[in-house]
């Protein structure tokens, strides 16, 4: 059964929500810093919008949503063949 637990732990670690969440958080922080430091040339190129800053903040929010989602609803992968044990079958 330890194999089963191992599998679950690994599946959780590699939950796509964690990976997207982590990557977006990282990208978001980089862009936010870049956006704050952006010179006038960058702002002018983007039609006067501090686009790096805004995109950065949005990416932090999206990343956080993925991480919170993963926290609140962790992936449990029920094996259909064992579904009887899960006692939650509908007719």
């Amino acid at each position: 059964m330890s194999g089963e637990i191992d599998r679950k732990r690994v599946a959780r670690l590699f939950d796509i929500r964690r990976i997207i969440g982590g990557l977006f958080l990282l990208y978001g922080m980089i862009l936010t810093v870049v956006g704050i430091l952006d010179g006038q040339a960058s702002v002018d190129k983007a039609e006067g919008v501090r686009i790096n800053l805004w995109t950065g903040i949005a990416m932090i929010v999206v990343g956080a949503v993925f991480l919170v989602w993963e926290r609140l609803r962790p992936l449990d992968a029920p094996d259909p063949s064992h579904a009887e044990e899960a006692e939650e079958r509908t007719e």
Partner: peptide
């Protein structure tokens, strides 16, 4: 034309 470095990389 529109994206400054940073978002451009994304």
């Amino acid at each position: 034309d529109l994206l400054p470095n940073g978002v451009l990389g994304i």
